[in-house]
């Protein structure tokens, strides 16, 4: 008969590892799938800078439901609007004003006050 003899410290480390593994496996089995999806991700806030009559970044990639926050760093007012579905529009944003909007689908948006100012938000599905 072969007896495996480990030093006490090493044996304790191994038993801790087994305990951790069991906890992980039990946890994975016990969490309902819908709850797992809900706790997966909170909406994030993305910032777009308006400067020199441009939106930076010009194309923003987000996930559905994320919030986009624009900050006007120009010295004139701007007013933003979704130009695809016309679902949202900001008030006139004077210099240093900000405007936040949850975005549910990809869109092109414009500055209503300054023709030619436009940019994109792309909603990634994953």
């Amino acid at each position: 008969m072969i007896l495996i003899s480990w030093p006490a410290g090493r044996a304790r480390k191994f038993s801790n590892f087994v305990l951790l593994l069991c906890t992980f496996l039990l946890g994975a089995c016990a969490t309902p799938p819908d709850l797992a999806e809900n706790i997966e991700r909170q909406p994030q806030v993305h910032e777009i800078e308006i400067k020199k009559f441009r939106f930076n970044p010009a194309t923003l990639y987000i996930q559905r439901g994320d919030v986009v926050r624009w900050v006007n760093k120009d010295i004139v007012p701007h007013r933003l609007a979704d130009s695809v579905q016309s679902k949202w529009q900001s008030q006139d944003m004077v210099p240093q004003d900000s405007f936040s909007q949850p975005i549910m689908m990809s869109t092109l948006y414009v500055c209503v006050l300054h023709p030619g100012m436009q940019a994109n938000i792309v909603v990634r599905e994953n």
Binding site: K51, K52, F53, R54, D74, I75, V76, H114, P115, G116, M117
Partner: peptide, 19 residues
């Protein structure tokens, strides 16, 4: 710097005026 930051406004106005 202020003059540099003003230039895009005037350029946007020019484009708007032409439209």
């Amino acid at each position: 710097d202020t003059l540099i930051s003003v230039l895009p406004a005037f350029e946007a106005h020019l484009a708007h005026s032409k439209m």
